[in-house]
Every structure is written in structure tokens, then in C-alpha cells.
Design a protein around this nucleic acid. Structure first.
Length: 602
RNA sequence: GGACCUGUGGUGCAGUUAGGAGUGCACGCCGCCCUGUCAAGGCGGAGGUCGCGGGUUCAAAUCCCGUCAGGUCCGCCA
């Protein structure tokens, strides 16, 4: 384990078993740890004694126990994962019994006395054996899961990441400030976790979804650069890469800063993290993609740039120029025609294409395809396109014999989403992405507003406090759908690591921005009173970002599930299987809080 | 809120496609044997309402409906 703690010599131990080497031969030692394995030969007992820190980090040493010693009686019948303190003598193993797979394999300890410090019941699952255990069991017995090693190693890595972040940002003049956990409910964004107040009947604190307003208030207060490895709480559904309930962000904010300044600092930070955590190399500055470009070329705003396979644009070429109604009507309907090459070494069965057609239908997009089989083109488009048109499609998609070409016709965003998802799946199934590469990129120029299909009005596409590009003039002169925000995402290998913005610090621009979304100034004042007030007393221009701490670690550790980098995570349904949260509380507790539970009616 | 996958002795699985006796594998557990193992080995044994409820059937782990639990995804996450 890195940063091995100093050994306290006391009645339990004077050495760590995992530290013993040939130089200790002849020493009398006292060891303490877990009984990891027993091999009972009747007249001779071998015991593997494991130190704290898991098998890889903690190390283990073999004890030799003979029936004539006092240790025999204690150890012989003791169950695995019991905790013992043992005294004995370090001896060299004979050449034929050396175990080269163990760091301590050249020595062993002949046990003399043994004391049971605690005994273990029969285990719910094997701790030492390297078998997959269902996650439900691992969460319920998280402490046993930790003893198995890999999880504990990831906690060590997590500690290291926190250290790198603090050291680096400290060296760049960022001040770590703790912000409140109990704060006020905020109407925008995710659902809040609420905490009832016993002092004020009917009033609630809320856990912060992020320290967003506090960090902006710190800017107003004159803190030039702020950061915090900040707990964030959101009562929203989880995903494999999204921890339910709570997670941590490397929250940072800079006064008198532009988008470029934030990019520069984050590139330095990510470079320091990669250097401190991996032997991989990153090249700053990171490439930048405009949001529109990312969507058109990769079908997503978080593209995996480790491989090419770009989406081809055919609206102006194939669209409208064929007998095929599906293509002919596209331009006049405001639809796009997009194509994606599927490399040929996937011997796609027909069923695979059916799945594509189904996915298309679910998005309201027309999906079709052309298979460039060696014996000639196949698929629905093969029959319906002229040779010239098929050739045009093939060239645009950069497809060769043996490949297939997927075609999507429909509204721009759903068509892009369809092919983007196919690109992601094909990339994964064909192993196109080099697992050793970290492909960082900035996605910039997000739209400020998006059309609300129900009301026909405009909604904020992202953070309502982002500064619109072009300021008041843009809000006045442009169609809201064309206003871009100083809003940016950091992506890596198809994962969104972070989202940030240059903040809108000007009340006049804020009023104009909210007016586009249909809100008057009273709405800002009532919803975000602290920020609104503060911004009337000289707020500096400021910008920031909040890279996901757990998610960065998940990417660095190449884990498919974010719970693998969290010591005590909630499960997917936001239940704590270990502690049993959430749980009902007593009537007395509810009375104190002036609350009554109204169960949902089925 | 919705879709899909999974649920079989303590653990991890096979058996479900095509209904026919709780049938199998590895580990663990209990007992006995065993002085050089390190996934110790040998012999014997215990342990199961096949998640739960209902239905179809002569017969259900297997088919159907519902439900619960775990996971993956959509919605959601400013």
C-alpha cells in the first residue's frame, strides 16, 4: 500500500507479517491480522495471516503451526477471517518450499503462541477466493468486500486522486472552502433532498445539488480562485456512471476569468491528475468541438474520440435527388440524411439490422441500410437506390466491400442520436477504442435555449446562469435558438467528465435572458435571492467548472460502474443495503418535526 | 414514470430454448484421516418452499399473469 502507516508496536504486534523477508530470519516476532487461509495436514498446520489493507496492499505471511505448541489449540479450530495475534520465530524456508508468488515466500513464521482477538462466523461469501460475488452481497457486506483487496486498492487510488487535486490546485492559488450541507431548496434543476426543521414547523433545509450559488457568492466576496472536493446531493435516478443520491465534484470557480482561463487551468489539472495517477500521456491543449459539430460528426455531445467512424452528411447530395420518397422529401421537411459506416468484420446477421430499424423507430427516425456484400449490395437500399446513388452513399460513408452503411433520415437531433448510439456500440463491439488512450476534448458553444415542444416557448438548455455569447445584443437581435452560451463540457472517451460556464454576473443581462424563457425579474429574485442581491453589489466576472470526482476516478481505473470507486455506495435504487437507509422513523421523531406521513395510494 | 436482463442449498454457476422425480459442477460448511502445503489432499455427511403469489397442465425450476429484489438502459440529472 502506498503511504503505509507507521507501525505501532504494542501488545498486538511488533512487525507486519507482509514485511518479513530473509533478513528477519531468527527474529522473534509478534504479528496480528486476519486468518486468510488454513491448510491442515493433521500433524502440521499452515496458516496465511493477512495484514490490513487487502491481499495486494496488506501482504500475508505463512505461519507454521505444530501440535506441540500453544498456538495449535487456538488456531486449529478457528474459522477463516478471525483475528489473531501470534508470536513466533521467523525461519527461512527450505529451497523446495519457497513460494515465489508471495513477497514473503522465502520465509515463514513458526508459531509459538496465539491469541484470538475476535472470531468470525461462517462467511456469507468467500473473502480470499477470486470469484465474482453478486453486487447485492458485496454492498451488504461491504467490509468483507474491502478485505478482498481490489476495492480497497481503489480507495487508495481515490485518496491519491484527492491528494493530487489538492496539491495541484493549491499550487495554482485555489482556496479550498467548505460550503454548507444544510442550505435552502432551490427550484431549478434536480429534485432536492429535503431535511425538515424541528425549530420551524413546515420549513425545510435542502442538501445542495452543488455548491453553485455559494461558489459564485465567494467570487462576489473577493475570493479570486475557489475549489472544493464538494459533496453534491440529487434525488434523481442513477446510472452506471451516475451515483444515486450523492457524489463528489472538483468544484472550482475563478474571478476575472474567461472561458480560455478555465480551459487552461483545467488542462493543467487534468494533466497533473493523469501524470500523478497513470503512466499515460495527455496532450494539452485539448481539442475543441463546437456542440453542433459534435452532434453532426459523432451524433452526441460526449463523443469517444479514440476512433474515427464519423457520421456522413448527405442531406444536400442524396436528399431530394432520388425517386425514393424517404430521401426525396427530406430537405423540404427540414430533415437530414446521415450515414454511418459499419466496418465489415462484424458479420452482421439480419437480426442486427432489425434492431437498428427498431431503435430508429423509437426515435421517430427512418432507418435503412446498405450492405456491401462481396457478391453485391444487399439490404433495403440496395434495391431502391440507383447505382450512382449507392456509389455516392458508399463514398460519403467511406465504406468498402464487406462493410455496411446505416442511413438515418429525420430531424437533426434524433437522427444524430440514432447514429451516434450505433457508432458507440459498433466502436465497443469491434474494440475500435484503444483502452490505453485518454482522449480529452472540450465541447463548446452549447445553445442557450431549446424549444419546448409542448408550449412552443423557449427553455434554458443548460445552466440559466451561463453568460449568453454576445450579451444583451444577442438576446435582442438573434432568434433564441441561435443564441449560444459560454457553456462548455469536458469529455473523455465518451464520458462527460465535467460541465461549466462563464457565469452571467450582470443583472441586466440576467433579466433579459430570463425574459426569453418567459420569466420576469421577480422570478429570479424569489428563486435565487442571495445571488440576485449579491449581484447588485459589484460581482466580478467569473467562470468555473466542476469535474466529477468519482467519474474521473472511474475512467482512470477503467471501471464500468461508479460504485466500484466509492466505499459505501447506495445501490441503483438509492438504497443503502448495509445501513438500511432509507428507513421509517418513529412517530416521536415525526412529531418533533411536525410531519405526518401520507402513504401513496395505489 | 417506462423498457429489458437476472433471481436454483451459504457463494458462483449449469439445468429453462423443447414441461416428466430437486438432476449436476466448483467453492464453502460439519465429521474423520493426513508432517511441507500455499486453490493442500483423501473419505463421509448436512444443507433447497428453484425469490414470492396465482394460473395452465395428468405433471411446472421450465409455459402464462402478477408481484418483490438486484442490475442495465430511456425519461430524469439547470
Amino acid at each position: 500500500m502506498e503511504d503505509t502507516p507507521p507501525l505501532a508496536v504494542n501488545r498486538y504486534r511488533d512487525h507486519r507479517g507482509g514485511d518479513l523477508r530473509p533478513e528477519h530470519v531468527g527474529h522473534a516476532v509478534a504479528l496480528a491480522g486476519w486468518l486468510a487461509a488454513k491448510r491442515d495436514h493433521g500433524g502440521l498446520l499452515f496458516v496465511d495471516l493477512r495484514d490490513p489493507g487487502g491481499p495486494a496492499g496488506g501482504g500475508a505471511v505463512q505461519l507454521v503451526v505444530k501440535p506441540d505448541g500453544g498456538a495449535w489449540e487456538v488456531l486449529e479450530g478457528l474459522r477463516l477471517e478471525s483475528v489473531v495475534s501470534v508470536t513466533g520465530t521467523v525461519v527461512a524456508r527450505s529451497p523446495e518450499t519457497v513460494n515465489p508468488r508471495l513477497p514473503t515466500g522465502e520465509v515463514e513464521v513458526v508459531a509459538e503462541t496465539a491469541e484470538v482477538l475476535s472470531s468470525a462466523d461462517v462467511l456469507p461469501f468467500p473473502v480470499e477466493r477470486d470469484t465474482d460475488i453478486g453486487e447485492e452481497h458485496r454492498l451488504r457486506y461491504r467490509y468483507l468486500d474491502m478485505r478482498r483487496g481490489p476495492l480497497t486498492e481503489r480507495l487508495v487510488r481515490r485518496n491519491r486522486l484527492a491528494g493530487v487535486v489538492r496539491a495541484h490546485l493549491g499550487s495554482r492559488g485555489f482556496l479550498e472552502v467548505q460550503t454548507p450541507i444544510l442550505t435552502a431548496s432551490s427550484p431549478e434543476g434536480a429534485r432536492d433532498f429535503l431535511v425538515p426543521s424541528s425549530q420551524y414547523p413546515g420549513e425545510f433545509y435542502a442538501l445542495p445539488q452543488a455548491p453553485q450559488q455559494f461558489k459564485q457568492l465567494l467570487m462576489v466576496g473577493g475570493v479570486e480562485r475557489y475549489f472544493q472536493i464538494a459533496p453534491c446531493f440529487r434525488d434523481e435516478a442513477s446510472r452506471a456512471d451516475r451515483s444515486p443520491g450523492e457524489f463528489y465534484q472538483i468544484d472550482l470557480e475563478m474571478a476575472f476569468a474567461t472561458q480560455e482561463d478555465v480551459f487552461d487551468e483545467v488542462e493543467r489539472l487534468m494533466t497533473a491528475i493523469v501524470a500523478g495517477m497513470t503512466d499515460k500521456v495527455t496532450a494539452a491543449p485539448f481539442p475543441r468541438l463546437r456542440f453542433a459539430e459534435a452532434v453532426d460528426r459523432y451524433g452526441t455531445d460526449k463523443p469517444d474520440l479514440r476512433f474515427g467512424l464519423e457520421i456522413a452528411e448527405l442531406t444536400a447530395t442524396l436528399g431530394g435527388r432520388t425517386e425514393l420518397p424517404m430521401l426525396a422529401g427530406a430537405p423540404s421537411a427540414g430533415h437530414v440524411v446521415r450515414a454511418l459506416r459499419v466496418p465489415g468484420d462484424r458479420t452482421a446477421p439480419r437480426k442486427w439490422f432489425d434492431g437498428f430499424a427498431e431503435a430508429a423507430k423509437a426515435l421517430g427516425v427512418t432507418g435503412s441500410w446498405l450492405q456491401l456484400a462481396p457478391a453485391g449490395a444487399k439490404g433495403p437500399l440496395a434495391r431502391r437506390l440507383t447505382d450512382a446513388e449507392a456509389g455516392e452513399l458508399t463514398r460519403a460513408a467511406d465504406a468498402r466491400t464487406g462493410d455496411a452503411v446505416l442511413v438515418a433520415v429525420g430531424s437533426r437531433l434524433p437522427a444524430a442520436a440514432l447514429l451516434g448510439e450505433q457508432r458507440r456500440q459498433v466502436g465497443r463491439e469491434l474494440g475500435l477504442a484503444d483502452p490505453g488512450t485518454l482522449a480529452f476534448a472540450w465541447v463548446v458553444d452549447f445553445p442557450m435555449y431549446e424549444r419546448n415542444e409542448q408550449t412552443g416557448g423557449w427553455d434554458f438548455a443548460h445552466n440559466p446562469f451561463s453568460m449568453p455569447q454576445g450579451g444583451l445584443e444577442a438576446l435582442r437581435d438573434l432568434d433564441p435558438g441561435d443564441v449560444l452560451a459560454y457553456q462548455y463540457d469536458l469529455v473523455c472517451n465518451g464520458v462527460e467528465l465535467s460541465s461549466g460556464a462563464v457565469r452571467n454576473h450582470r443583472p441586466d443581462i440576467m433579466e433579459a435572458a430570463f425574459a426569453v424563457a418567459g420569466y420576469g425579474p421577480e422570478r429570479i429574485r424569489s428563486s435565487f435571492p442571495a445571488l440576485w442581491n449579491a449581484f447588485h453589489y459589484g460581482p466580478p466576472p467569473h467562470a468555473g467548472i466542476a469535474p466529477g470526482f468519482d467519474r474521473i476516478l472511474m475512467v482512470l481505473e477503467d471501471q464500468a460502474n461508479i460504485r466500484e470507486v466509492i466505499a459505501f455506495p447506495l445501490n441503483q435504487s438509492a438504497r443503502d443495503l448495509l445501513m438500511g437507509a432509507p428507513s421509517p422513523v418513529s412517530d416521536a421523531q415525526l412529531r418533533d418535526l411536525h410531519l405526518r406521513v401520507v402513504p401513496p395510494t395505489p
